[in-house]
Amino acid sequence: MDVFDILDRLVAFPSVAGKPNNDITGWIETHLAEHGTKVTVLPGPEDDRFNLFATIGPTDVPGYILSGHMDVVPAGEPQWSSAPFTLRRDGERLYGRGTTDMKGFLAATLAAVPMLAGLRLARPIHLAFSYDEEVGCRGVPHLIARLPELCAKPLGVIVGEPSGMRAVRGHKGKAAARVIIKGRSGHSSRPDHGLNAIHAMSEALSAAVSEAERLTRGPFNSAFEPAYSSLQAGVIAGGQSVNIIPDSCTLDLEARAIPGVDPASLLAPIRARAEALETDGFTVEWMAMSAYPALSLPQEAALAGLLRELTGEAPLAAVSYGTEAGLYQAAGFDAIICGPGDIDRAHKPDEYILTSELAACQRLIEALGARCAA
């Protein structure tokens, strides 16, 4: 199978984050096994979702991990011009959910396996495919925890998120949380008999706005746009009718932090303001939704030098979106981003990848294999 056949099969699996993924995992496992690749399927605690780890070459020698996620975001937008889970080719464009984010990278990696398997690799190349990246990088921590028993400590991890095949050394960290405030309902004509949860939530919302403004004053890191950490309230919901005192209100928040700043710490002032409302009779629930650390690979790192040689371009300092690379680095492994496609095409109707981008990615992986065989 060539890269286009593989991508066609991968896109056909509607592997939406948060759903069972045994179908796509099983297909990849079978495909790899056909080429004599050692494959380990790793069940997550959900019991219906799986990570996959495969090795080409020796397991007891340090090598490189090619990392990607098998899940995609939903494709319910009405603006799709064709079925999102059916690959459609139009010239150089290949349309379908996940083509860019990031089944294109998975396809290029799997297409390179026969060539890699035919080499006598002195250093291994590992494939690490995760689940539920799109809902907060929930699957990959379980995979990372198993790495010591699966392989020697890797020399580096290449995370194939769409970067136009330009290596990237950094990204911000992120934390998201939900605060739920519960009061007491009643008729709006007697506000003294109820506890208005929306009014109470205004305290937490005000704290979020104040913290967001404060962060614009630094600290700064010029590699990022914007150059400072940020915070926003993204979703707020509550109430039933204008003449009913709302007894519940929910607020979703996220913080994005430059390297050196814990993203969860940026949400702490909002949590403190919300929980203080309990003294007024409200019930407050704080739920961490997702979190991953920033990535900051030094310019002089050997992995950055390797990607400079393989791509012919110096790695970019940073991008605005986040990836699983920060989690690999937090676990003690050098990590870098490099993959086909453009992040601006992701999470949109008519997502697509270019045939030339797939070819470039497969060439890079095969060139990495040639290095490992030297």
Rank of each mutant, 00 (worst) to 15 (best):
A176G: 15
S229H: 06
R146T: 04
F220W: 05
N21E: 10
R93P: 00
R97D: 00
M287N: 15
I236A: 07
D342E: 13
P162D: 01
D280Y: 12
L32T: 01
A83Y: 05
E149Y: 00
E161H: 02
T323S: 15
Y292G: 12
Y328W: 14
L87F: 00
H69Q: 11
A128W: 00
I6P: 14
R214M: 05
L364E: 01
A274R: 02
G173T: 08
V72F: 00
K19S: 13
I270F: 00
Q329L: 05
A112T: 08
G281L: 14
F85V: 13
C338T: 04
Y321H: 11
I244D: 01
D23Q: 15
E366W: 06
D247Y: 03
G63D: 02
P263A: 10
G96C: 07
D192G: 15
G194I: 10
R89W: 06
A75N: 06
A233I: 11
G238D: 04
N221S: 09
G322K: 08
K172G: 04
L155S: 04
L306H: 02
F224T: 06
A54K: 07
G91A: 06
R190A: 11
P269A: 09
C151Q: 04
G18I: 12
P219T: 11
D262R: 14
E324I: 09
L215E: 09
R166Y: 02
I245R: 04
P78Y: 03
R97Q: 05
H199A: 14
D262N: 15
D334A: 15
S67Q: 08
A272L: 08
V242I: 15
A122V: 12
A33R: 15
S67R: 09
A17Y: 03
